[in-house]
Write a protein that binds this DNA or RNA. Structure first.
Lengths: 132, 132
DNA sequence: CCATCGTATGCCAATATGGACATACGTCAA
DNA sequence: TTGACGTATGTCCATATTGGCATACGATGG
């Protein structure tokens, strides 16, 4: 089986840096294709193709204006990405908190060792349960 | 040029749903490969290959335990994804606020129209500036 | 030492990609 | 009408993918 199409969902669509650049540009306001071509400094067909992908996953909307096509950001599909990744943010924090706790423990043990002149006991505890 | 390798960055790595499943599983604790195989219900080589990708972008760490390999989540690289997408969350909120405002306006205009017996004026304003 | 377990890897097929280039198409101005 | 402009699309190339299958490999138990 081949890789999932970039038009499958927002995850695949924003995996391409150039497309993120396009979205970033559109986040600051509507843009015509040529505007984007200038801002990104890439060939026009390339931009058009990326816009097509973004259109197909609903990340942008188009509007005809004379011979120009004005693209507008449609952030809704990014919600899926945000919702998935946001839960992991807690893990960084937790990890840091846990690190702090470990350091505290070590300091305490060290202090006790200094007082008693013996080596700190190796406290071995699993920090995550293994539910299988 | 072909599509960027899945091992390029977290964006590409998590574009694959199965890999997100793996990360979700690991978020609840360490897992051996076979644990993951059972939980995901996919063939073992497939899991191993996805784990390889995740390893190469630093999203998981491995530890040998007898003949098992225990995988652990390393959420740090997801920060890049979070940081990029989080700014877009504001846009949903803003959009909703704007929608609320529009609805308020419509209601007000409607009320006035009812009082005066005329149709509400179409208020046309650009909501985003076009900086090129 | 040998068989088995747990895992990783190699090869294959089918598919999709992003970019370069050429070109088609619709709109507008003269 | 004709030509220029703005944009989309088609073709081609080189590359990478996911999953299936077979198999290699290291650790362990007998």
């Amino acid at each position: 089986m081949a890789r999932a199409a970039t038009t499958t969902d927002a995850f695949n669509a924003v995996a391409e840096p150039r497309r993120r650049d396009i979205l970033d540009a559109l986040a600051r306001g509507e843009r015509s294709v040529n505007d984007l071509v200038e801002q990104l400094g890439v060939a026009q067909p390339v931009v058009s193709k990326h816009l097509r992908v973004l259109r197909e996953v609903g990340l942008v909307q188009v509007r005809d204006e004379g011979r120009q096509r004005i693209y507008r950001l449609e952030p809704a599909p990014l919600r899926q990405v945000f919702e998935w990744v946001k839960d992991y943010e807690r893990l960084w924090t937790e990890r840091f908190e846990r690190l702090d706790a470990v350091l505290e423990d070590l300091k305490a043990e060290q202090a006790q060792a200094d007082r008693q002149g013996s080596r700190p006991a190796t406290s071995k505890t699993t920090d995550e349960e293994r539910t299988s």
